[in-house]
């Protein structure tokens, strides 16, 4: 495993820890999109089915279990915890899952490497992950008050796939890693969707101002 890949995974892990910290410490999920969190549960469940089929490494299996467990835990907090769920921005989190899940699934049926159950779900998870942040970004645009933890959570979540892009370039040149258009293009689109957010996040950080996204 190269440094970019490890940095990507750690950034992803850190983003989730930060979100759980926000929820547990402040007993609030204000500014967090339940739609995006539910999409992540679907992404991890469809991608990590191979957990029971192929063993890669202890690291790989552990991370998969952590991502599955924490994503379900976050959704549980937002839907069922008696204090946390009252802080959820129900009226502003209006994006419909359906409009992302269905096109991604159809695309996975049409564009994939092998027509097998596991492979179709794996491809679907990559397509869905690339757009899963959209409900969250829409919610942030509507929010007048984005707290630091939420802003940094989204920043780290975006940075993680960006680091994977470097990992793929590195693997391509050093490990004879073949061209993998499906994850590469999905990852590129996923990172590109954050471009605007990155710009405003870094600008607010440099100017020591509160983060605000233009509507």
């Amino acid at each position: 495993m190269n440094a970019f890949r490890l940095a990507g995974d750690m950034t992803h892990l850190l983003s989730i820890i930060l979100l759980l910290l926000k929820i547990r410490a402040t007993k609030s999920c204000a500014g967090i999109s339940l739609k995006t969190q539910e999409l992540y549960v679907i992404v991890f469940m469809s991608r990590y089915l191979d957990l029971f089929r192929t063993y890669y490494s202890l690291y790989n299996s552990l991370m998969k279990i952590i991502f599955l467990g924490t994503s379900m835990c976050i959704v549980w907090y937002m839907r069922s915890h008696k204090v946390v769920r009252q802080t959820y921005n129900n009226d502003e989190d209006t994006f419909r899952h359906f409009f992302l899940v269905l096109p991604c699934f159809v695309l996975a049926l049409l564009v994939h490497r092998n027509f097998t159950f596991i492979e179709i779900l794996w491809t679907f998870s990559l397509y869905l992950e690339s757009v899963a942040i959209l409900p969250q970004l829409v919610l942030l645009q509507k929010s007048s008050n984005i707290d630091n933890l939420t802003g940094t959570y989204v920043f780290l979540l975006g940075a993680y796939r960006g680091l994977y892009l470097f990992n793929w370039v590195y693997r391509f040149f050093t490990e004879n890693h073949r061209v993998r258009w499906i994850p590469w293009l999905s990852g590129l689109i996923q990172t590109a969707i954050y471009t605007d957010f990155f710009y405003y996040y870094i600008r607010s950080w440099k100017n020591r101002e509160k983060l605000k996204l233009p509507a």
């Binding site: 995974d9 992803h12 192929t54 790989n60 990992n167 073949r178 993998r180 499906i182």
Partner: peptide, 10 residues
């Protein structure tokens, strides 16, 4: 061998 080595990623 055409195993997808992307599957070892997360």
């Amino acid at each position: 061998d055409d195993d997808d080595d992307s599957h070892d990623e997360l």
